[in-house]
Design a protein around this nucleic acid. Structure first.
Lengths: 245, 245
DNA sequence: TTGCCGCGTTGATCAGGATCAAGCCCCCCT
DNA sequence: AGGGGGGCTTGATCCTGATCAACGCGGCAA
C-alpha cells in the first residue's frame, strides 16, 4: 500500500520533516536548492511511503517521476529477455533515483525494504537543473560516486570467488548500516535489507551458492547469523580479509 | 615513446587540428568552452601521442593531468592485491578521461592502442568547471553515459555465458568502429583494438575461453576471423542474436 | 641462421558454482 | 488444525569455464 502525502511547507511542518533534515544536512537534492526552488519543490513533491517490491522506475514504461530516498533501500536492476536478472546498484538515503536527460532509463528501480521517498515530477527536476548549476553539480557528484560503486561491483563480478563476493557484500551493507551497533555483545551487528535471492542477483550468483557461502563464513567464525536477516561480525578485519581486496 | 606538443592556437594551426575538430563537432570538453576558456586550454593543453601500454592515470600515484581522447582507445581497469584484474571501462574518442573532485581515482587508465590525447592540468579543468556550468553539464552527461555502460557490463559479467559475453563485446566494438566498412565483400569488418588477454580482462573470462568462443562463433558462421585482430560480421543480426539481449 | 618472446590456439583435466531435488521453518489464510 | 506459500538450507550431481600444458606463428635481435 502506498501513501502519497504532499510534503509540508518547511516552516509550518509540525512533525520532523525528513526533507528539511535533508536540506539542513545538505544531502539529497534539497541541499542544493535556493529558497524559491525549495519552496516550489516542497509544493510539488510528495512524501511517499512504499512497501518492498514497489516499482519506482521501469525500463518498459516511461516514468514521469523521480525520487530522493529518504529512508530505506532501493535496488536498480537490469533484465535479459529470458528473465535472467542482475542488480546493478543499491541506493540508500539520501540518494537521488532517476536518470536525467534520458526519456527512458533502461533499468528498473524497486523498493527493497519499506522505503520513504520524496517524489517529484521529472520535468520539474530538469527545469531546476537548468536553473541551478549547484544542483547539477550535486547530481554530478552523485553520478561519479555511483560510477565508482558500479566499477567496484564490476571487479567483484568479474574476478572474485563466491566467498569473496558474499564477504564484499556483507561489508558493504555493514558500512551502510546506520545503526550498526558498536561492540556491545561483541562486534558489529546489522540487518540485511535484501533476501537471499536479491543478494544472489546482486552478486551474479545463485540463491543456493549465497546460502552455502554464508554457512561457510559462519563456520569460519567470520560472521554469526543471529536470524536469517540479522548478521553479527565479531571482528570486522576478519571480514575485510575475506573480500579479496 | 611519448610525444608532447603544445596544441596550436586555433586560428593559426596549419594542420588539421583534432582539438578544433572537437570544438566544431561539439564533442569532448572543448565543445563546452567559451572563447577565453578555449584559448586558455589551447595554451596549457598538450597534444600527446602515446603508444599502447602507456599509463595515463594510476590508482597508486596521484596524477595531475586529465585528458581527452582524440583518437584511439583507453582502458580503465581495477586490480586486486593478488593481481587479478578487471577492465571496467573503455574510452573512445572524444571521451574525457579523469575523475574530477577526487584526489585519486582508484583505477588505472592505460592506452590500449596508439592513442592521441589532449592533456591538461587537473586544476585547470576543475577551475573551468567552477566557472562554466555548461562544461559541468557536458561532463555530467558523459558520466551518466559511462554509468549506463558500466551497468550494461555488470549485466554481462553477472549473468551472461562466455559465448554471449564475447558476442556482446564484438558488437560493442563493431558499433564503436569508425570505419566499420559497410557491406562490401559481405557484412561489416572491423579491427579489434584489444588483445585476447585484454578482452578476457574485460569480460571476466580467461584468454583461453575467449579464444575458444571466437573459434566457435566462427564455426557457427556468426563471424569470420580474417586476421587475429580483424573480424568480419556477415550478418549483424546474427551477432546480435548471440548477445543474450 | 638461431633463438627467443609475445600472442594466439587447441587439447586434457579439474573444480567452482549451477542445477535439480528435498525438506525445514514461519507466517498467514481458511 | 490443516494447508499452502515464501524464504532459506542442504545434499547430489552436472557442466561451464578455469587451469595446466603443449604447440604454432611471426617479429626481432644477436
Amino acid at each position: 500500500m502506498m501513501k502519497l502525502v504532499p510534503i509540508a511547507p518547511l516552516d509550518t511542518d509540525p512533525v520532523p520533516d525528513l526533507c528539511r533534515a535533508c536540506k539542513a544536512r545538505n544531502r539529497g537534492i534539497c541541499g542544493a536548492l535556493n529558497a524559491s526552488q525549495l519552496s516550489e519543490l516542497t509544493r510539488r513533491a510528495h512524501r511517499q511511503v512504499v512497501e518492498p517490491g514497489k516499482t519506482l522506475l521501469d525500463a518498459e514504461q516511461p516514468t514521469s517521476n523521480y525520487s530522493n530516498v529518504l529512508a530505506g533501500v532501493v535496488k536498480l536492476s537490469k533484465m535479459l529477455p529470458d528473465g535472467r536478472q542482475q542488480i546493478v546498484g543499491l541506493q540508500f538515503a539520501p540518494d537521488f533515483v532517476g536518470r536525467p536527460f534520458s526519456p527512458e532509463s533502461s533499468l528498473k528501480a524497486e523498493a527493497v525494504t519499506s522505503t520513504v521517498l520524496c517524489t517529484f515530477p521529472r520535468q520539474l527536476l530538469e527545469r531546476m537543473i537548468s536553473e541551478s548549476p549547484e544542483l547539477e553539480h550535486k547530481l554530478y557528484l552523485q553520478a561519479l560516486d555511483e560510477l565508482d560503486d558500479a566499477r567496484d561491483l564490476l571487479l567483484t563480478l568479474g574476478r572474485k570467488t563466491a566467498r569473496e563476493r558474499v564477504a564484499t557484500f556483507l561489508l558493504m551493507i555493514a558500512r551502510h548500516s546506520p545503526h550498526a551497533d558498536g561492540n556491545d555483545e561483541g562486534g558489529t551487528g546489522f540487518e540485511l535489507p535484501l533476501t537471499r535471492a536479491e543478494i544472489a542477483d546482486f552478486l551474479g550468483l545463485t540463491i543456493e551458492t549465497v546460502s552455502r557461502q554464508l554457512t561457510k563464513l559462519k563456520g569460519s567464525d567470520v560472521i554469526r547469523v543471529e536470524q536469517n536477516r540479522r548478521i553479527r561480525v565479531p571482528d570486522m578485519e576478519l571480514l575485510e580479509a575475506e573480500t579479496g581486496d
